[in-house]
Design a binder for these strands. Structure first.
Length: 565
RNA sequence: UGGGGUGUAGCCAAGCGGUAAGGCAACGGACUUUGGAUCCGUCAUCCGGAGGUUCGAAUCCUCCCGCCCCAGCCA
């Protein structure tokens, strides 16, 4: 859990004001109301942290309620994934697991009450007709010819809608509000539709289903929610929810709207994420590139890092795009303190230490975590033939390249100083195939007794003992900061990053990693944080997902083209 | 265009009439057996714009401009 004080923002201000005025006897109850039609993503995490966080902060309660009023898109499997993700994030709804579908009977009774009060009517218009008669932004709507039906007729028709006497889509129950209202949502909105669809929970019990606008506010009311926190797009619905609650004369939660989260270089829309999954653009909802909770988990993100992120981004009413860099900073900070360092070479370059005995192998002591001495040390084998990172050698280095080059001396982490004396190339391709180096036996462990300095320390593995591994490197899913910003006429997927996944299969990691636990986090020195893949990793052949890189000034220098300054 | 919101640094975001918090990013520097971590420093004379009220305005008033949401029997 984040150690910082709960952040203050306009929502907490409102709640505190209500407590001060003894509204709801000072009680605070919120809810997280997902629709089980997809997996949760980082945007939902913001809402979860907000709702559960506020409840905890004001000694209240937070319910988990599934808003399952649309049988056509919802599935039990999604319910399970949502529960798993909320739990994993560290929140507990105890016995308050609710479903709007459990309220269908009650909602039906409310509708009957509304009809009896003359505030709702059965309308025989088709969907197209309703749409056409609603008017436009600037023109008022027209009243339905069925608007003035008697209470008795409405009651009879509504009961028969439920009984299945009418075909799908032939009739609706509508609120009788005001077809001239400048707010389109107040122009006699549909409350019930006839839909012969199988619901994952109520099965075929119902033929009519409440719309979200009808179900949501009343569900909150039934649960005694005091503060109904939702995203900005529902602000224009608030007058409708208020109207409905007032007509019914039931408990009236206070709705507060905040800006939904957007993160740079990705999309946070269940519809779009579903499309990526269905089209095979990613391997699934839990693809490590996905901004879903399950994707982030598989990528190596921790609940604590996600919670910290949600705390840092704040809560406001302006739509904004938070930089992915903030999320990355949160996971780095969390992992830095508690993850073991190891060495792994992603793109191996063979190095032969020509003055090191052919048959010798020694064990060198390496620190597991310089941030935490209690994590101890381990031994890594060293021998005549090693692998270093291809990127750590340049034949003709620019001014700011500190690593290995011909004639130059560097340190191998926890091992020896080595100096490059010869570059061997493949005669055919011209590619560097091997480096010949000498080592200084006096620098064992990496110290130089004569205090001479080297400008770089490289990670390495001993060729004979190294474990082959696969490492998956990820880049952002989209190339543009605002992933949704596409040219007129082109698909929203136009900005998909074709290079978002790079699988390296020739990697070599130190022998201590031969049998790592799926899901376990590691820092590969100088490279980043990696997480053992939970699906594809096997004992003897580990698969690592790069969670995030380490801060890399050299990469910045290259990106800015300043390597010779 | 009618209605509802909202504009503070490259990105988030405090601020609620008394003279612009904090984080991320970036850039310097110290330290360093990770170009990591850590530390120290720089980064808005100015708050979408123009007027006005006031001793005093990002905060109040007026007008203007930009952006977001609403015309599903989706949520």
């Amino acid at each position: 859990m984040s150690q910082t004080e709960p952040k203050r923002h306009f929502v907490s201000d409102i709640i505190e004001e209500d407590i001060r005025n003894n509204k709801n006897q000072g009680r605070v109850q919120t809810r997280f109301p997902p629709e089980p039609n997809g997996y949760l993503h980082i945007g939902h995490a913001k809402s979860i942290c907000l709702n559960f966080g506020l409840a905890a902060q004001y000694r209240g309660l937070c319910n988990l309620r599934f808003d399952d009023t649309n049988p056509e898109t919802e599935e039990a499997a999604y319910v399970e994934s949502i529960k798993e993700d909320v739990r994993w994030l560290g929140f507990d709804w105890e016995d308050r697991e609710f479903y709007a579908s459990d309220y269908f009977e009650k909602l039906y009774e409310f509708a009957v009450d509304l009809i009896k009060k003359g505030k709702a009517y059965v309308c025989d218009l088709s969907a197209d007709e309703v749409s056409e008669q609603r008017g436009t932004l600037t023109q008022p709507g027209r009243e339905s010819p069925f608007r003035m039906r008697s209470v008795e007729e409405n009651l009879d028709l509504f009961q028969r809608m439920r009984a299945g006497e009418f075909p799908d889509g032939s009739r609706t129950l509508r609120a009788r509000i005001d077809m001239f209202n400048p707010n389109l949502l107040m122009r006699d909105p549909v409350l019930y539709r006839i839909r012969r669809a199988h619901h994952y929970r109520t099965a075929d019990e119902w033929l009519i289903y409440p719309t979200y606008d009808w179900a949501h506010g009343q569900s909150d009311s039934i649960e005694g929610i005091t503060h109904s926190i939702c995203t900005l797009e529902f602000e224009v619905h608030r007058p409708l929810y208020d109207w409905l609650l007032d007509q019914l004369g039931i408990h009236h939660p206070r709705q507060i709207e905040f800006a939904r989260l957007s993160v740079s270089h990705t999309v946070l829309s269940k519809r779009k994420l579903l499309e990526l999954v269905k089209e095979g653009r990613v391997s699934g909802w839990d693809d490590p590139r996905m901004p879903t909770i399950s994707g982030l988990r598989r990528r190596g993100y921790t609940p604590a890092a996600i919670r910290t992120f949600c705390d840092l981004i704040g809560v406001a009413k302006v739509n904004s795009i938070v930089d992915m860099a903030l999320l990355e900073d949160c996971i780095r900070e969390d992992l830095n303190k508690r993850v073991s360092r190891v060495m792994g070479v992603l793109r191996p370059l063979r190095v032969v230490i020509i003055n090191y005995p052919e048959d010798k192998t020694e064990e060198l002591e390496a620190v597991n975590n310089p941030e935490d001495a209690s994590m101890g040390t381990r031994n890594v084998p060293f021998s005549r033939v090693l692998y270093i990172e291809r990127e750590d050698f340049m034949e003709d280095p620019p001014k700011k390249f500190f690593r290995l080059a011909p004639g130059r001396e560097v340190r191998l982490r926890y091992a020896y100083f080595i100096k490059c004396v010869e570059v061997i190339k493949d005669p055919r391709s011209g590619e560097i195939s091997e480096l010949r180096c000498t080592y200084d036996p006096a620098t064992r462990g990496g110290d130089s007794p004569d205090r001479r300095k080297v400008k770089a320390t490289l990670h390495w593995v001993s060729a004979a003992q190294a474990v082959p591994a696969e490492v998956r490197l990820y880049d952002t899913l989209f190339t543009k900061r605002d992933a949704g910003e596409v040219e007129e006429g082109s698909d929203w997927k136009a900005n998909l990053n074709p290079g978002s996944l790079e699988a390296l299969t020739e990697c070599r990691v130190e022998p201590s990693l031969i049998d790592v636990h799926p899901g376990s986090p590691w820092q590969f020195e100088r490279l980043g944080y990696f997480c053992v893949d939970t699906k594809d990793s096997k004992s003897g052949h580990p698969v690592f997902n790069r969670t995030v890189t380490l801060h890399d000034p050299w990469a910045n220098i290259r990106k800015a083209g300043r390597e010779n300054e």
